[in-house]
């Protein structure tokens, strides 16, 4: 690759990192507005989350509990940006040819682990309990998600997200995975897993503000909390994009010279719809207990996912 090509690639990646951050913050603001409307409130302006992050990053005092605490800030933002850039977004491959879905699964763990390290380093017992809950949640929702992922992988005979997206975009909407009956089941299970990944309401057990004082974030303030808000915003985009890439063809509907504009808009609309769905579920359900969430995922969701996997396996073997 020549210098020019590398420069273009770097510029593209930077642009997508910035877009991802902005889109995430915007969505979070819109989500707050929607929840307010469900509650019959007016709600904050849609740009409220930009203001919040700016305020947190401009706080005068920032309290740290030592260098391990700082790892939370460093790893959460860098890890989630890394994850975002390894996903195909709206048909643009970014770095997704250099890795695959397994890599993305494990990259998602980098910010989570950094965050958990920082939370643990504060020494606050609430943080320890919160991280424990987050990890148990992770074990819970990963099982149905992994099973659906494997169903997709054996159907398309690839683990690369870029290839999965390409194979689903051959005939536009008609070739999306979600149009096939087994993958409808899988998509349902994966969407519930997404709800847990996003830590939205029935599964917001790890941060439960009224039980454990916002859990892992209890000692985070100022720039630390600001960076975590950024992490959450980018994670929202990354996780919904992962779902879109797996089941909705990555939002690719058009091919041609200026198709990427249409694809980008479709991708944006799809992740927005997914986010709205999860926000509406969040607005209408109370919080589970951790054992209930574990049982929900390992019993019902895992069985739904397993049915789809067996179905796909039979299809493939034929």
């Amino acid at each position: 690759m020549d210098v020019m090509g590398i420069a273009i690639k770097v510029a593209l990646l930077t642009a997508y990192a910035v877009i991802g951050t902005c889109v995430g913050l915007l969505f979070m603001g819109i989500g707050r507005k929607i929840i307010a409307r469900v509650h019959n409130r007016v709600g904050p302006p849609f740009y409220q989350n930009f203001i919040d992050v700016a305020k947190l990053l401009s706080k005068k005092t920032n309290i740290s509990h030592g260098w391990i605490f700082d790892l939370a800030l460093l790893f959460s933002i860098s890890g989630i940006l890394l994850t975002l850039l390894f996903l195909p977004i709206g048909g643009v491959q970014l770095l997704s040819m250099e890795g695959d879905a397994f890599l993305v699964l494990y990259l998602l763990a980098i910010p989570a682990l950094g965050f958990a390290l920082g939370a643990g380093a504060s020494g606050n017992p609430n943080a320890g309990v919160g991280v424990m809950r987050a990890l148990v949640m992770m074990l819970s929702y990963e099982l149905p998600f992994i099973i659906t992922l494997i169903a997709l992988m054996i159907y398309y005979d690839t683990t690369s997200l870029a290839t999965i997206v390409r194979m689903q975009s051959i005939n536009g909407v008609k070739s999306w995975a979600i149009t096939m009956p087994p993958f409808m089941l899988a998509a349902f299970a994966a969407d519930m897993a997404l709800q847990g990944m996003l830590m939205e309401q029935p599964f917001d057990i790890p941060v439960a503000p009224h039980e454990i004082a916002s859990g892992p974030m209890v000692e985070f303030g100022g720039k630390y909390l600001g960076s975590l808000m950024l992490y959450k915003a980018i994670a929202l985009v990354a996780e919904t994009t992962l779902f879109v890439d797996l089941f909705l063809g990555g939002g690719v509907v058009a091919h041609g010279n200026f198709a990427f504009v249409i694809n980008f808009i479709v991708w944006l609309a799809l992740i927005f719809l997914l986010f709205i769905l999860s926000i509406l579920i969040a607005a209408s359900f109370p919080r589970f207990r951790i054992e209930q969430a574990f049982g929900f995922y390992w019993k019902y969701e895992a069985i739904i996912a397993a049915i789809s996997l067996i179905w796909v396996y039979i299809l493939v073997i034929k």
Partner: peptide, 26 residues
């Protein structure tokens, strides 16, 4: 099935550390 490029991961991680480090140092 796919490709795994360790260098892409490491370089991108280091590059992604830059905004995090700016926030950290600001």
């Amino acid at each position: 099935l796919a490709k795994y490029n360790s260098m892409a991961v490491l370089i991108t991680l280091i590059a992604a550390m830059v905004p995090a480090f700016i926030i950290y140092k600001a």
